[in-house]
Every structure is written in structure tokens, then in C-alpha cells.
């Protein structure tokens, strides 16, 4: 990191005179990224040691915000909900995405047609999806009421556990297509010869799936899980429009907690503390998953190599 400072080291290879201009080419991207990425990242840490209402003066206040947040029972609750959303949505999405990905990797024409429909949710914004399901699930005006089926006309978003389940379902509806796409790509890279060899040995479909497809998808599973897990930390749009963290904080994940504290309660200090925790959890998870994935190999997958 210290290399960032000055050592532009010109003239490393005398053959190519153009080299000296190279660092300048990276300058605009670096400038914008530092301005709206790196500085805010440092800034959020600094702001967590201040008191600020979002409008007036920023007053340094030491550890006050940290003490307030750490003593607040809302924090363990938000952490728990965030973890639950992460774990349950992973458990729900991963097997389905793998199965759908394997299915769609087949070359049959009708599967290609199905794929066109399967991937539509990818294109919709979280806001559009949340607005749709909110209308669809409304106990008075939604689908259940219209069909006259009491089982469907429950207060899906008004009851804690139901609202949590609904969030998981809608999240999956939105993201399963993306992960299916990843798995479809992964399956298509498995050498055909492996399946032929297995067939010669008399392996059936199920055996082939567990002995070839699944192990060969290892790095796709790691990539997909990393994106799912780290991505679930930033489910803000969907939850905000769907439930705004409610009912009674049943779906108040960290990102929603941060927004509510900062931009609704005007407590930017404590909100920054939550943000720092969010960054910390994200980095920790990314490192952990990389460790599980066996280091460098998983990065090369992430890099699309």
C-alpha cells in the first residue's frame, strides 16, 4: 500500500518510451475512486467518533456513539436478523440455483426457451420487485383476497415471522436467476469426457451429478456463495420498500438499521458505527470464504480468468 505514495518508477524498460504516460492513464479512475470510495470509507470511521445530525456542525465526541450503539439491544438484534437473512437465503437459493443451472446447461431447445423466462427477474429493479410483491401480497387488495383463498390472504408483511419468510422468498425470486446463470456457465465448462467415462463405468444420472457435476462446480459454488453472502449485507432497497424493517423490527437488517438511525433519526454518529460494523463484517466474510475456497484459486475464478 505504501507504494501508492510516490514511486511511479519511470523508465523501467528503456525499450518502450510510452511507459512514462501509463500512471497518468490510471489517474482519472483513481481520482474518482479515492474521492467517492476511499475517502468515504475512511470518513465513515472518522464520523463514527463524532456527533452530527446530518445538517448542522459535526462535533467530535470520542466514543459516545460507539458506547450508545454497543449498549443498544437493537444492535445484536440487527446482527441476528442480518445473519438469519444471509443464512436462510443461502440455504434456500443455493440448491435451487444449482439444480436450475444444471438443468439449463442442457442443450435441448425447450430449455433455451425456458431460460428466456427464467432470467426476467434479473432485469427488474429491487424497487419494482418490492412494489409488485407488496401489491400482490396485500391482504385486502392482493391476490389472496381476489381469489378468495384465506390461506393466501394472510397479512404477509404485517406479521413478524411471515414478513421474514416473505423477504426471503422475494430475495430468492430476485437473485436465483443470477446464480442459476453462474451455475449454467460453470456446468458448461465441465469436460464432456468426464461424463462419457462415467457412463462407461455405468454411472447413473444421480451418481454423475454427485460425483462429477457437484465437485467440478466447487469454484462456482464458492463464487456464488461469496456474492450471495456479501451481497446479502447490502439488501437495502428490497427490504426498505417491502417492509421498511418492520413489522416491529422483524426485518431490520444492518443496512436498514444504518439508514433509519442516520437519515430518519438524524443520528449520523451511531449510523456510522453501524456502517463500520457492516464493512467489518463484509471484509471478514469475504476473507473467510476465500480461506474456505483454498486461497488463490478462488480469486482467479472471481477475476473471471
Amino acid at each position: 500500500m505504501s507504494a501508492l505514495a510516490t514511486s511511479a518508477s519511470p523508465g523501467t524498460s528503456p525499450r518502450r518510451g510510452g511507459d512514462r504516460a501509463l500512471p497518468w492513464l490510471a489517474a482519472p479512475a483513481l481520482l474518482v475512486f479515492v474521492g467517492f470510495g476511499v475517502i468515504p470509507l475512511v470518513g465513515v470511521l472518522l464520523l463514527s467518533f463524532t456527533t452530527w445530525d446530518g445538517l448542522g456542525q459535526i462535533i467530535p465526541s470520542g466514543l459516545t456513539s460507539w458506547q450508545a450503539v454497543l449498549a443498544d439491544p437493537g444492535l445484536p438484534h440487527a446482527l441476528w436478523i442480518t445473519f438469519l437473512v444471509m443464512a436462510v437465503s443461502w440455504l434456500f437459493q443455493t440448491p435451487l440455483s444449482i439444480l436450475l443451472g444444471v438443468f439449463l446447461a442442457g442443450a435441448q431447445r425447450y430449455r433455451g426457451v425456458l431460460a428466456v423466462v427464467y432470467f426476467i427477474p434479473l432485469l427488474l429493479s429491487s424497487a419494482a420487485i418490492a412494489v409488485t410483491f407488496k401489491a400482490l401480497l396485500d391482504p385486502n387488495f392482493g391476490l389472496g383476497a381476489g381469489l378468495g383463498i384465506p390461506l393466501l390472504s394472510q397479512d404477509w408483511l404485517g406479521n413478524g415471522p411471515l414478513a421474514f419468510g416473505t423477504v426471503i422468498f422475494v430475495v430468492s425470486w430476485q437473485y436465483i436467476p443470477f446464480h442459476t446463470l453462474l451455475y449454467q456457465g460453470g456446468v458448461r465448462q465441465i469436460p464432456q469426457s468426464m461424463y462419457e467415462a462415467a457412463e462407461l463405468d455405468g454411472a447413473g444420472r444421480v451418481r454423475k451429478f454427485f460425483s462429477i457435476t457437484l465437485p467440478q462446480l466447487k469454484y462456482t459454488i464458492i463464487t456464488s456463495s461469496t456474492l450471495m453472502v456479501v451481497g446479502s449485507l447490502t439488501f437495502f432497497d428490497l427490504i426498505w420498500v417491502l417492509t421498511a424493517g418492520g413489522p416491529a423490527d422483524a426485518t431490520r437488517v444492518l443496512a436498514v438499521d444504518m439508514y433509519k438511525r442516520g437519515f430518519q433519526a438524524s443520528l449520523m454518529g451511531p449510523a456510522s458505527v453501524i456502517a463500520v460494523i457492516l464493512v467489518g463484517v463484509g471484509l471478514l466474510l469475504a476473507l473467510l470464504l476465500r480461506r474456505i475456497g483454498g486461497g488463490s484459486n478462488s480469486t482467479s475464478q472471481l477475476e473471471g480468468a
Partner: peptide, 19 residues
């Protein structure tokens, strides 16, 4: 630096961006 930027949930920087 850019690679590190991939691992960070940038939404968490929204408060300083706002500032």
C-alpha cells in the same frame, strides 16, 4: 486498491458520500 474495493460493501459509505 481496486481489488480491495470489490470486497467492500460500498453502500456502507453512504453517510460520508452524503456529507
Amino acid at each position: 486498491l481496486f481489488l480491495m474495493g470489490l470486497a467492500i460493501p460500498l453502500q456502507a459509505t453512504i453517510i460520508p458520500v452524503y456529507l
